[in-house]
Write a protein that binds this DNA or RNA. Structure first.
Lengths: 218, 218
DNA sequence: GCTAAAATCGTACGAACGTTCGCATACTTC
DNA sequence: GAAGTATGCGAACGTTCGTACGATTTTAGC
């Protein structure tokens, strides 16, 4: 390993942590230099621009995400087991004690949701790939005959993803110690529902018109 | 209405929009002054400090949230109808076309999740109150005999909240036009499940040890 | 219409920001 | 060990940041 790559890795470790707490924009090169014991210019030289540094931070986080969430789940054989493993490791990843600031990818996604640019585009691709992986894994469970035929896998992926986001929010902002239990329970229910043949809807229907808001959509 | 209060309201309108896109920190007084056609110092005088401005932005957003989400839902009589109305208006609020940047409260909650201070504390209180309102409303539905006896209302509130966060993420980052349908479907299922007597768990249990991660918790 | 108060402005400050550049030191490779 | 390159530093640039203060204009109450 080159000297350069080595210090670059050190920098990125600190950078990921700082970006998690202060955001990708709030992470400043000066403070990062102080944290790593380097000079501003020396650190800067490794990346050439702040945007490039932000990109590098996201790529480092994504790489870590693969290593800690995706790879371990691939040991499982069935779709359901992989989904459970993905979920399990994802929660661990979302709330890793040693990394303050939670998942940098989720935080940055909120931060850059409405700010066009390469950071935004990168995040969209990365997060869409993640949700699509969940969807494909549920599709695999359907193909295996474990989840019911005709399951709406996009819907499944949406709910799976939502539970994780809910956990992230509750655990980080509320410091809710029950968040883990809630998330696991929600996943159990989601998977159970995916197995069951479709339930007949109950007779009672809501009095409120439901989708007026979305009426303009296709 | 005083002149002061009037311009202050104008400022806050712009400020809420800017904070939604650039974050509470990314919102700068200079750019805000340019957007409102005022001088930096003139604008600054209305608040006295940037933290105070941030507080004012959050309070303005919270007030608007009450006006647009909580109040309308109070017209409904039953717990379920109120829950559905809360959800409906919440989604509208989360993705209001005229307000770029999504819900400032959610964005700021992520931004300040790990940054102690009065902004953090305010957000914790506000968001906890919101989730607790959902919980109380589901409790009301239980008391009315609509939701089943013994329903875990904290769990219900967690899932309700998660769906909203999932919608916010999908709609804003992915520009997913199906997000609204997914969210509504998820809510329907959540409410249906709250009505049903507890389902017997299916025989198949996961092979993966499920809660190792949370084993250290109480 | 006068006057006290409120609102707004212009200017300035020190700090922090991202970035540049030339120079020194440390590595690698032969 | 010499040559050549990679790496890091220090100082400085121009810009933007939040904030302060006195002067000036605009509003509100009598």
């Amino acid at each position: 390993m080159n000297k350069g790559a080595q210090t670059q890795a050190t920098i990125l470790n600190h950078a990921v942590a700082m970006a998690g707490v202060h955001g990708l924009d709030g992470m400043s090169i000066a403070r990062l230099a102080r944290a790593t014991g380097m000079s501003k210019s020396g650190l800067f030289g490794h990346f050439g621009s702040k945007v490039a540094l932000q990109r590098a931070v996201l790529e480092a986080a994504a790489k870590e995400f693969v290593r800690r969430v995706l790879i371990p789940a691939q040991q499982e054989r069935t779709g359901e087991a992989r989904l459970r493993a993905l979920f399990h490791h994802w929660l661990q990843w979302l709330y890793a004690e040693e990394r303050p600031g939670g998942c940098p990818l989720v935080s940055a996604s909120i931060e850059f949701a409405d700010r066009p640019g390469e950071v935004h585009d990168y995040l969209v691709d990365q997060q869409e790939a993640w949700v699509d992986r969940i969807r494909r894994m549920s599709q695999k469970a359907v193909a295996e005959g474990n989840f019911r035929e005709g399951l709406d896998t996009r819907q499944f992926a949406f709910e799976f993803h939502s539970i994780g986001l809910g956990f992230n929010f509750a655990r980080r902002l509320f410091s809710d110690s029950k968040a883990l239990t809630h998330a696991n329970t929600a996943l159990d229910q989601l998977i159970d529902a995916a197995k069951r043949s479709r339930q007949p809807r109950l007779a009672t229907r809501p009095a409120l018109p439901q989708r007026v808001y979305g009426a303009h959509e296709g």
